[in-house]
Every structure is written in C-alpha cells, then in structure tokens.
C-alpha cells in the first residue's frame, strides 16, 4: 500500500516536475515554441488516449520466477514466511485493493473518461476557441507583426533613406569639400600659375607698357590732332559759309583791284550782327563801305552748333576784303 502510495507520490512528483518544466517552458520567452510543444503534447496525448480506450485491457500474467535456492535460517525462514505471508496477505490485500482500486480506478477511469471526454470536449471547444483566439491573435499578431514589419520596414527604409540621405549628404559634403579643396587647389595652382605668368608677363608687360604708353601718347596726340582737325574743319566749314554769305552781299566797287579793307565783326551768339567797324581802311571809301555793307547785309551769320566754339572763335571775326 505504501508502495502504491509511493508510486503515486512519485507520479505526482513527476507531474509536478512536468508542470514545473511546463511552467519553466511557459516562462520561456519564445512563446511560439511553447505553444507548439503544448499543442504537440496535446495531440500525442489525445492519440494515446484514443488508442488506449479502443484496445483490450491488458492481462497481467504472473511470470514464474526461476528457483533460486539459498540457505536461510529458521528465523529467517520464519521471517521469510511471515514476510511472504505478509507479502501474500499484502498481495491479497493488494489484489483486493487493486481490485477495489481497479474498480475504483475503473470507475474513476470511467468518470475520468467522462470527465476527460467532457474536458476533452470542453478542451476541444476551448481549444477551438483558443485556436480561434489564437488564430485571431495570430492574425492580429501577424497583422501586428506585419505592421511592425511594415513599421520596421518603413523605419528601416526611413533609416535607409536617412542613411542614404546622410550618406548622400556626406557624399555631397565630401564632394563639396573635395570640390572646394580642388577649387582651392585649383585657385592655388592658378595663383601659382598666375604668379608665374605674372612674373613671366611682368617683363613683357613692362615692355608693352612702354609701347602702350608710347602708343597712348601717340593716340592721344592723334586724337588731339583729330579733334583739332575736326574743330579746324568745323571752323573752316563755317568760315566758308560766312564767306559765302558775305560774298552774296558783297559788291566790289570798280577800280579797287588789289585794295584791301579789314573790318572787325562782332556777333551775338545767335549769329546776328552786333557791330562792324573798319580797322584798316583800303583807302577807297567805296570799298570800305562795300565791305561794311556786305557784313551788314547778312541777316544772320551761320555759326557752329558748338556754343563754346562759337564763343571762342566766332564772336569776333576779322574780315579782309580784297578787291579782285
């Protein structure tokens, strides 16, 4: 009896250990494996249960022990006998107990089976529910997981992008820096070359500067000359125009050939006559008068547009009338 109890205790212990193991397993972080193992055990246990319920009850036959002779004392024999008897009794008790136990067990088993069936059903339902829940959870999990994956993916992509961006920025920065560096180097090189070139050109420039100075001086002189020529041309142009105007008004008196009268003509800036006077007579009153009359006869003297030139050159004009 004690032995059975011990065995029972032993079994309970095993179960407890198993439970502990399960708990331990349940405590495991990776719930997926735990869940898988539980399901596996459930399946196996169900299969075992089903197969056990369908098989015939196992017949327990006593297995003849082989004769082993050993000299023993009476006490021992007696003890043995007693023991045997005890054992037999125990055996009988045991058998009875077993019978009771078996009956009980059978009942219990039956009950258990019922219970088990109920539980099984319940469990199946629960399992179904659980499966559904799990499925849901799984779906949710998967969705979450997918979401997480997506998030992660996005994060990763984002990160990748950021990294790429960062890398690109770094690359650009690097390139920029490189470029700046190159540019600086280029500048430095150019500066060096420039300095060299400048040094090389310095001498040439010096020569050219001299030539240029001479050229500029010549050009300046030429321009001055041109300007003077232009001014001279302008003066001559208007001298001729004035001469023409005077000529139209001039009637040289006869018999004055070769005589010359010189008059001073003062003009307003508008070209109108301010005054005219004889500054050197020809000796012929007629010629003097003809010169004066010719000047007075010009209503308006043609003058250049350049007022400065007019003021400088044309405000006072000396005219010499030489009778042809």
């Amino acid at each position: 009896m004690k032995k059975i109890s011990a065995t029972k205790t032993n079994n309970q212990t095993k179960i407890a250990l198993l439970l502990d193991a399960l708990k331990a397993i349940f405590k495991a972080k990776d719930k997926r494996f735990l869940l898988a193992s539980v399901l596996l055990h459930i399946v196996l246990f169900s299969m075992l249960l089903i197969s056990w319920q369908n098989s015939e009850p196992v017949k327990i036959s006593s297995i003849p022990n082989s004769v082993q002779a050993r000299v023993i004392s009476l006490d021992e024999l007696k003890a043995l006998r007693e023991k045997r008897e005890a054992e037999q009794k125990k055996q009988i008790d045991k058998k009875n107990a077993q019978k009771k136990k078996q009956e009980l067990k059978r009942k219990k088993e039956l009950k258990r089976k019922k219970e088990l069936k109920r539980k099984k059903e319940l469990k199946r339902k629960e399992l179904k529910k659980k499966k559904a829940r799990e499925k849901k959870q799984e779906a949710k999990r998967k969705a979450d997981e997918q979401k997480k994956i997506q998030i992660k993916k996005k994060q990763r992509e984002k990160r990748l992008k950021e990294e790429q961006k960062k890398k690109e920025e770094e690359r650009q920065k690097r390139e920029r820096l490189e470029k700046i560096k190159q540019e600086k180097e280029q500048v430095k090189r150019q500066e060096r070359e420039q300095r060299l070139l400048e040094k090389m050109q310095q001498a040439e420039l010096e020569t050219q500067r001299q030539f240029e100075a001479e050229r500029v001086a010549k050009e300046l002189s030429r321009q001055q000359r041109l300007s003077q020529e232009q001014e001279l041309n302008e003066i001559n142009k208007y001298k001729n125009l004035i001469r023409l105007k005077i000529k139209q008004q001039l009637h040289y008196p006869p018999k004055t050939k070769g005589l010359k009268v010189t008059v001073k003509v003062k003009l307003f800036s508008t070209g109108e006559l301010a005054s005219v006077t004889v500054i050197k007579s020809s000796g012929s009153q007629a010629l003097d008068r003809a010169g004066l009359s010719a000047v007075r006869g010009v209503v308006k003297f043609p003058l250049p547009e350049d007022q400065a030139l007019v003021d400088r050159e044309f405000r006072e004009i000396v005219m010499g009338f030489i009778s042809p």
């Binding site: 004035i242 001469r243 005077i246 000529k247 003809a290 010719a294 005219m319 010499g320 030489i322 042809p324």
Partner: peptide, 11 residues
Amino acid sequence: AELYIEIREGS
C-alpha cells in the same frame, strides 16, 4: 585768337 576770313570774291 580772332578768326580771320579773307574774301576775294563778290557777288
């Protein structure tokens, strides 16, 4: 500085 114009022809 005075401009000088010589006239040797008449109308």
